[in-house]
């Protein structure tokens, strides 16, 4: 299979998810006796040249130096048309979500998103999660195709090393309409809460039910001398500030203990906390995806457990 791996460059650095995806592309090439070509827009970072690929296709145009969706779509659309890869793989980043669906529509190619793996045993299929991670779906489609892989689908440290020649292709993108005009990126002022160094985090999700119940978990956090964290819905509802959010749009944490209370464990949350040494999850839904990654699981109503747990811990101290 002729595989193209799109490499996202963020401020001159190869996106980590793109490296993971390159590992996936190498595995797919090995399974299909195929080849991997890395596709890069703009300058090629040196570390990309240390990976094993057939070649690095360096697409050059002034408009590609900073991300803007319509230029990205037009550029890759032309590359796919002229180079005819069987499949193009991407890391499932927020940026990829902003342009590749539209590319798929332009070329009328299937785009299989947020995949966790592929199979080549029978036909070529990819696996993706549906119903909030409770079910896996093997998807069938025809090549040429576009596929994005979820964070963690492959390991960045398993990427094969090698050398690669760079082939440059210059494109004239001056005819692309300027109807989408991105401004400068900015980072929200960092709050006073830094969860990344916390040893123990008590984290609360939608299962807490209402704002009035937050003190219940705050007390447990205090008893454990822990920081209080939360999943996205808790911030969306205004129950806790954004600075306490763990996950892809919040903080990434790696505590000794992560105690997840009423958190279902959507992938966007998991990417922020799966590096914890020990994950303890309390959730009333035994099928919640949080139990996929928990070391200790408790299927129960958190309101029956948390107050007693707080008392029990206080008694130990």
């Amino acid at each position: 299979m002729k595989i193209f791996a799109f490499i996202q460059i963020d401020d001159g650095v190869v996106n980590r998810l793109s490296v993971e995806t390159l590992t996936g592309a190498q595995k797919l090439a090995a399974a299909t006796n195929g080849s991997v070509t890395a596709v890069v827009f703009g300058a090629v970072p040196d570390d990309l040249k240390t990976y094993k690929v057939k070649e690095i296709l360096n697409v050059q145009a002034a408009e590609l130096e900073d991300y803007s969706p319509l230029y990205y779509i037009e550029a890759l659309s032309r590359i796919i048309s002229s180079e005819s890869p069987d499949t193009v793989v991407f890391g499932h980043t927020y940026q990829v979500r902003d342009w590749v669906p539209r590319l798929s529509a332009r070329l009328k190619l299937p785009f299989l998103v947020d995949c966790i793996g592929f199979k080549t045993d029978d036909n070529f299929t990819v696996t993706r999660q549906i119903s909030q991670g409770k079910i896996n779906a093997d998807m069938a489609f025809e090549n040429p195709s576009l596929i994005s892989f979820q964070s963690g689908a492959f390991r960045a440290d398993e990427v094969e090393s090698g050398t690669a020649e760079v082939r440059a292709i210059a494109l004239d993108l001056s005819a692309v309409p300027g109807t989408i005009r991105p401004g400068e990126k900015y980072q929200q002022a960092r709050g006073s809460v830094d969860l990344s160094h916390a040893k123990v985090i008590v984290s609360v999700g939608r299962g807490i039910g209402k704002e009035e119940n937050i003190p219940l978990v705050k007390e447990l956090a205090d008893a454990l001398s822990a920081e209080l964290g939360c999943s996205r819905p808790v911030v969306d509802y205004g129950w806790l500030p954004h600075e306490r959010q763990v996950g892809s749009s919040g903080q990434t944490v790696s505590p000794k203990l992560y105690l997840a209370l009423g958190i279902s464990g959507a992938i966007q949350h998991q990417v922020g906390m799966k590096g914890a040494d020990t994950i303890v999850a309390i959730n009333k839904d035994e099928n919640a995806p949080i139990f996929e990654i928990a070391d200790i699981g408790i299927v129960a109503d958190l309101f029956e457990i948390v107050p007693k747990l707080t008392e029990s811990i206080k008694a130990k101290k």
Binding site: L109, T125, I130, K134, N136, M139, F141
Partner: peptide
């Protein structure tokens, strides 16, 4: 452009 081939519990 694509269809589900098989569903299963992870």
């Amino acid at each position: 452009l694509s269809h589900i081939k098989k569903l299963y519990v992870p």
